[in-house]
Nucleic acid binder design. Structure first.
Lengths: 241, 241
DNA sequence: TCAATAGTGTCTATCAGACAATATTTG
DNA sequence: CAAATATTGTCTGATAGACACTATTGA
């Protein structure tokens, strides 16, 4: 229909942003980092809680992933966590400043690393329980982004080793099981859990580890920190439909 | 359009595009629609095959999905197929014209609908076998986009009803099984297939249907055309790891 | 009655889930 | 040895896959 002759670059370009849903498990709860928007004039949603994110900086970010890593580091001080793209949302109506498209990532960060970074002094950032977050009004369409991301996380935890990225190494199987239980919000059978984890062959024994437990548990590390392992089946209690 | 009230909007905005991987099954093969890029001066990758796509038009497209539907319709004449987002790719290096981010979708279209649209006269568009396409050099990073999309499709077909969107209604179970076999590239057991499909309760009987078969098979329709059904498990032959 | 395809039955190895038992360490 | 937690063992119901069988129709 329209044949391009010569260079035709669009005169009106959408705004391009990246938003990151940063998860951690703190105090036996799945928690999410939100930032409070400034109150400067004309800023949309002033004072409102929002997902950490912002405009892609074409001078600074070589890729979208780099941009997400930058946002993450700015807000948490954490360097190399697990980061995965959820998808993108774009349209004319989602930002009052104009047609915009955002690329959404989620990150899994061990709480201990966040503490170590001691960067949480970012005054406008705060951790919220995921359940709480669901009920909050967020800036832009961030409620929708967050809901989709939480669903993605929960469903993927059913058949992957993702929760391992919420723990500092070395970790023990009971600790890992606890991460699963927190994210899934339900208890998981001990025995089945162990056989499943060991069968997946993504853990490396690294010697027993000190803990407050009477019996010293085995410590493990991940063989590959880049990507999670996919289990052949889903966790599913007998009664589940 | 953009109100300048001293707000700091980025002066350099990335290019925003949408690319669509359009799949169909034609002649017992999974095929993909590619378009040949024009040879006008200064156009990048002149004469090269590429995924159908292009810039978001902020005046025309209300959302990214609308933009994808538009691209799809322009190239095939098809109106409402199955469309799903794969993800987004963005960076400084992927388009010589500047920092760009593309939003990738894939579509499943029954071949019969493409024929009916009789729109295939789009001279610069052509269907290629997916296997062939993998070996081709494509414009931009489209090879990577296509590969990721094909992987997504194949893996998702293992546990969803996606192949149903490759058939016009009403269709028969043997026909549906054939779609699975073509996409997965391996035979599927008849009996297990049938029980799985019927157990998933996403099909509606609509009476037996004429075919070239000696015995008239039952015809089915989808109960919901919006989204596929997720099976509790994956297809997996005994020997599979 | 045969050919060809649609559809059903059945057997079995596998295995996840449930629960119970045992091992190990500290006080 | 008691308490607490880590780790292993066993039983069983469910089921996916393999394969063989029956059903239906037209020539």
């Amino acid at each position: 229909m329209k044949k391009q002759t010569g260079i035709h670059l669009p005169t009106h370009r959408p705004l391009t942003t990246v938003d990151v849903v940063i998860f951690t498990v703190k105090e036996d709860q799945l928690q999410v980092l939100l930032v409070q928007r400034g109150s400067a004039d004309q800023e949309p949603f002033p004072g409102c809680w929002a997902l950490p994110g912002g405009f892609v900086n074409v001078a600074q970010d070589a890729t979208l992933l780099d941009c997400a890593l930058r946002k993450l580091h700015e807000k948490t001080g954490v360097q190399a966590p697990y980061l995965e793209q959820v998808g993108s949302w774009g349209g004319a109506g989602r930002d009052p400043r104009g047609w915009s498209a955002t690329h959404v990532y989620f990150a899994l960060v061990p709480w201990q690393e966040v503490q170590a970074a001691a960067h949480t002094n970012v005054s406008d950032a705060q951790w919220f329980a995921a359940e709480k977050c669901i009920t909050m009004k967020l800036a832009f369409d961030h409620h929708e982004l967050f809901q989709a991301t939480l669903e993605r996380l929960r469903s993927k935890v059913e058949y992957t080793s993702l929760p391992a990225f919420l723990l500092p190494e070395p970790f023990t199987l009971p600790q890992l099981q606890h991460m699963y239980e927190v994210v899934l919000g339900r208890p998981v059978d001990k025995s089945g859990f162990r056989t499943r984890m060991l069968a997946a062959e993504f853990l490396q024994e690294v010697g027993t580890v000190q803990s407050d437990a009477p019996r010293a548990p085995m410590g493990y590390r991940l063989q590959h920190r880049e990507a999670p392992v996919y289990f052949p089946r889903t966790f599913s209690p007998r009664g589940a439909k």
